[in-house]
Design a binder for these strands. Structure first.
Lengths: 213, 213
DNA sequence: ACTTCCTTCAGTGTATACAAAAATACCGAT
DNA sequence: ATCGGTATTTTTGTATACACTGAAGGAAGT
């Protein structure tokens, strides 16, 4: 693995997991020493992060970790609704029904995963990730898929702000199952509606449990 | 201006204007000598281009100029319709009516610009660009605006494939005027519809006059 | 003649040295 | 005391040298 990839992955993780807080200046020498790589690959990592919007170039003063305000969350979900509703509708038109039926079945059993031993709910998030990937593949539109992927980076960051209690996760699993069901039923409008419902519930939950730092 | 910015702008222009054709491998030493910069800023430029999707990293063997197939154009317009329709609707809700009324007025006079002396129709494209910027500002959603900006790069590239005859440009100006009018009238659904119509006409024209290279 | 291995070379990935720009701190003047 | 200017210092921007990887071409053996 390239040094620039390691630096990118490490910084990205630190930002997403809120170990590097918004406003933190990422000085090149400092970070390159911390991560054990030279300045050259580190700069490439910072370039990629800036292109994704996780950091912002602060002219002459290095790059700083981008902030996410409450307005940002609203904007983020506005775009997310636009993209994911369209994606769900397209998936319903073009997707493989059997695959989504299978994912729906697993999602209906998700409460077992959530109440399980793992406090990080790793298996649950993997399952949700599989739904995302299935939709990405079904739409067969690389530009749309790319736009959604770049959004998800920011969304994972926001998710870390909310208290992911078991009750909310169980409800979210049911909402995801409804989306998968609608896609499997090849009903674009229903898939779109189910996505809208899910995203609004998610947004409400995030805003309700949002703990200002 | 930084050397990396110059290299980025030069390469981007060369790709958009089809002076660098799809499949061309951009070797670092070769391009750095051609553009008169060192390899370091050139690599940063290539990173940015790759992040935008204008080039693709071909593992270990430099980066190559990305191809745009007919399917890509369909996908591009599918995403474009999704984003710009939403943007038009939001602009109708949140925008400054007077500004869009002014732009509409100028667009109705656009035939004068199109039939003018400039074969590049510079003034016309500036005017259309002002409508885009006005919508970007009106939606007050930086994530959506960013997504549209990254799309426009690819769209300019596609536009160069089509024969921009005076007839089509005149019609397009009228369609743009209709969008501006709907936004000024604060009618989201009409703005969305006008955008849909415009994009479908654009796509038809591109596909009709597309000259395979 | 074909295949396989080795050599060589082109090209990227990384490190570091140097230059330029910007920010800060300090000093002087008003 | 505050404002302005200058000098210093820190940090980024650029160039270049070196290392490593992957590929292509040639030579030798079958």
């Amino acid at each position: 693995m390239r040094a620039s990839d390691r630096a990118y992955a490490a910084l990205r993780d630190d930002i997403i997991e809120w170990r590097l807080l918004p406003g933190t200046v990422l000085a090149e020498v400092e970070q390159s020493e911390r991560l054990g790589v030279s300045r050259t690959p580190l700069r490439e990592a910072l370039s990629r992060l800036t292109a994704e919007g996780l950091t912002t170039a602060a002219g002459g003063r290095g790059v700083v970790v981008t902030d996410i305000s409450l307005e940002d969350i609203d904007e983020l979900f506005e775009l997310r609704e636009t993209l994911e509703c369209k994606a769900a509708a397209l998936a319903a038109e073009r997707g493989d029904a059997a695959l989504f039926l299978q994912i729906q079945k697993e999602l209906l059993e998700a409460p077992d995963l959530i109440s399980g031993a793992d406090p990080a709910r790793h298996d649950y998030y993997v399952l949700v990730g599989r739904l995302d990937e299935a939709i990405d593949a079904a739409i067969s539109n690389s530009y749309l898929a790319q736009a959604m992927r770049s959004l998800r980076v920011h969304l994972v960051r926001v998710r870390r702000l909310a208290a992911d209690d078991a009750a909310r996760l169980t409800a979210a699993a049911a909402e995801h199952a409804a989306i998968a069901e609608a896609i499997a039923a090849r009903n674009p409008r229903l898939a779109e509606a189910a996505t809208t419902v899910h995203l609004h519930r998610s947004l409400s939950h995030v805003k309700a449990t949002h703990t200002p730092h």
